[in-house]
Design a binder for these strands. Structure first.
Length: 285
DNA sequence: TCCTCCCTGTTC
DNA sequence: GAACAGGGAGGA
């Protein structure tokens, strides 16, 4: 399940495959995989991919009209936004590659020398979406408008301010309005590293605890990015490679196994509707 | 603020 | 053949 470190890795590995290439066509194989606010994907044709970056868990490909293309009469997208959700993958393939059972979108991509390849958006569970957008359309997307700050750029004061409210601290970490990019894996890992119980009310955290939690969150995200993310089941980067951070999990997926810090068996519960693993000794209530 | 639904492959 | 995995929308 791609969270911030996995999406960061996808963007980094995808960039050399797509930057400077012109979109020769788009084939959408599942209507619901297109965001309802998206411009028609036919308008991608002729646009050049000029940038690849990440915001939260979103992949953002910057688009620009070809230098020698005529002035268009239609509004053209300046951004292709991809939300991988649970099982989405962006896979560079040859021009001859054909759609698999879970292929949702195929883009044709031509290099400046004319060599054509394809970019596949495959998504087994079909939760992911693509969105051909303009800044104006993004502004209409509530999720985008209200997306919280990047955790790696967040200060302690900023983090503290965003933790208002009485709900469980884990629920706050998972809320993309509070911070962008955190999912179930990194919420559990950061809470364990900081020694904070996932069900503790965000409001009752001391300033020291909040500071420790933000530091732990940044550390776990940076460590995972350095290891190209975590591969649980479906996640692969754009080169088809798995990450290595799953080998460093302290709690995620380790219920019943001994805590790496104290040896007590890890416990499992549900917080905010999500499976949650924690150590009752290292993360007391 | 919490619960259900969407979706499909894997595990029990 | 049911339970489970889970991000986010939408409803209670």
């Amino acid at each position: 399940m791609p969270e911030l470190p996995e999406v960061e890795t996808v963007v980094r590995t995808l960039a050399p495959h797509v930057l400077g290439r012109r979109i020769t066509g788009a084939t959408l194989l599942r209507r619901q995989s297109l965001h309802p606010l998206s411009l028609p994907l036919e308008r991608l044709r002729g646009l050049v991919i000029t940038g690849a970056r990440r915001r939260g868990k979103l992949v953002l490909l910057a688009l620009a009209p070809d230098a020698d293309s005529e002035r268009p009469s239609l509004i053209l997208p300046s951004l292709l936004v991809v939300h991988l959700r649970m099982t989405g993958r962006l896979l560079p393939r040859s021009a001859e590659a054909e759609a698999g059972p879970h292929t949702r979108l195929i883009l044709g991509l031509a290099a400046p020398d004319g060599e054509v390849r394809r970019l596949f958006f495959d998504d087994t569970r079909a939760f992911g979406q693509v969105f051909a957008a303009t800044p104006g359309l993004l502004g209409q997307w509530r999720f985008w408008r209200e997306l919280g700050p990047e955790p790696l750029e967040l200060t302690r004061a900023g983090f503290s301010r965003r933790l208002a409210g009485r709900r469980a601290i884990k629920a706050a970490l998972l809320d993309q309005h509070v911070i962008a990019g955190i999912g179930n894996i990194y919420a559990d890992e950061a809470l364990h590293a900081a020694g904070i119980n996932p069900k503790q009310s965000a409001q009752t955290l001391t300033a020291e605890q909040r500071g420790r939690l933000l530091d732990a969150l940044k550390a776990v995200l940076r460590l995972s990015i350095a290891q190209c993310g975590s591969s649980i089941r479906d996640y692969r980067d754009a080169d088809g490679n798995v990450g290595a951070f799953q080998n460093s999990f302290a709690v995620y997926g380790r219920a019943g196994l001994p805590c790496r810090a104290c040896g007590r068996p890890l416990e499992k519960c549900r917080v905010a509707g999500r499976a949650t693993v924690f150590c009752s000794r290292c993360q007391p209530v």
